[in-house]
């Protein structure tokens, strides 16, 4: 078989495999399973969808007026499947966690878009890019790490389990108010933000972050191994922090760190695997300037191997 055709078929096979994983995840939501992979998919699929849909709406290819209504439609489908209204079951997490995940995904995607990055079809030259040292990247990465460490340090006491008032909070207050309204009850609502709320919000940010990290690792140009290794190191550190910050006792900290790391890793892995077909079909999260620069050097942004058609006009003339 022709090698090019074989590679295309393999790409499509990977795409089908990814679709199958998502189908297993949705199916397991309604029909329980004992396999750890199926359970991990069951829990990961709804959250990864909540990250993927807004990210695609902001960073995806195609027309905006088509993307945003489609994203709304996909969110409606998500709600139909996971709200329990039509098929039974219940939400994966309380609504504040789910809203926070969507907001984090939207904000991160918007920041990425403002910085000029968007999902684009890459040329063969883009595909052979290698990592390059950049002072600006080092400065940005250092600043981000410093801000993250400071924020985690500030949050640490606020995430600790409080046996006296931990279980009250925003979500619970809303539930009490709703029940009071419906039943005419007079249960008093405790005001304020409590450690459980902080943990819920932190968990939402952590889940969205690792999923976005998986997408970032796979979709940026250049080799994925360095980014995946960084992500694989960051997830256990995050899990260890969550375990240390959230629990009262240290007897089960090791076990909880492992469980949290596996849980977060499953989210990151599913997001990365979902983006893999896009990478195989030569889509990358990159700036438009790279494509124009290549066109100016006289290389057409077409597949050199299969295309025999010279573009009607060079890309440099058609690009803004």
């Amino acid at each position: 078989m022709d090698q090019h055709r074989l590679s295309r078929r393999l790409d499509w096979a990977v795409g089908a495999g990814v679709a199958m994983l998502h189908a297993i995840g949705v199916a397991t939501w309604f029909r329980d399973s004992n396999a750890w992979l199926a359970l991990a998919l069951r829990d990961s699929v709804p959250i990864v969808w909540l990250v993927l849909i807004p990210t695609w709406a902001v960073l995806g290819t195609g027309r905006v007026w088509l993307r945003w209504p489609a994203a709304m439609g996909l969110l409606a489908v998500w709600g139909a499947i996971y709200s329990g209204e039509f098929f039974g079951g219940g939400l994966p997490f309380v609504p504040p966690i789910l809203f926070t995940i969507v907001i984090v995904a939207l904000v991160c995607s918007a920041v990425t878009r403002v910085s000029g990055l968007q999902l684009r079809g890459a040329s063969p030259d883009d595909l052979s890019l290698t990592p390059q040292f950049s002072i600006r990247s080092i400065l940005i990465a250092t600043a981000l790490v410093a801000v993250t460490i400071a924020a985690l340090k500030w949050l640490e006491p606020r995430l600790a389990y409080d046996p006296l008032g931990d279980r009250y909070g925003i979500a619970r207050d809303l539930a009490i108010r709703s029940e009071n309204l419906l039943t005419g009850g007079t249960v008093e609502v405790m005001r304020g933000v409590f450690p459980r709320n902080n943990r819920e919000l932190f968990l939402a940010v952590a889940m969205a972050s690792v999923a976005l990290g998986g997408l970032w690792s796979v979709l940026r140009p250049g080799p994925v191994w360095l980014r995946l290794t960084t992500l694989a190191l960051a997830i256990p550190i995050l899990a260890a922090y969550m375990s240390a910050a959230g629990r009262m006792d240290s007897t089960e900290r090791f076990g909880q760190t492992g469980e949290l790391a596996m849980a977060l890793a499953s989210y990151a892995a599913l997001a990365a695997v979902t983006a893999l077909p896009l990478r195989l079909f030569d889509y990358r999260l990159m700036r438009a300037a790279a494509a124009v620069q290549i066109a100016k050097r006289g290389i057409y942004v077409v597949d050199k191997v299969t295309s025999t058609e010279k573009p009607s006009q060079p890309i440099a003339e058609t690009s803004p």
């Binding site: 991990a40 990961s44 994966p92 997490f93 046996p163 931990d166 007897t251 469980e259 949290l260 499953s266």
Partner: peptide, 17 residues
Amino acid sequence: AGPPSQAFSEWLSPTNN
């Protein structure tokens, strides 16, 4: 090892054993 939701639920509402 349980599914992710179990690990997260345990982290959100720890059972102090």
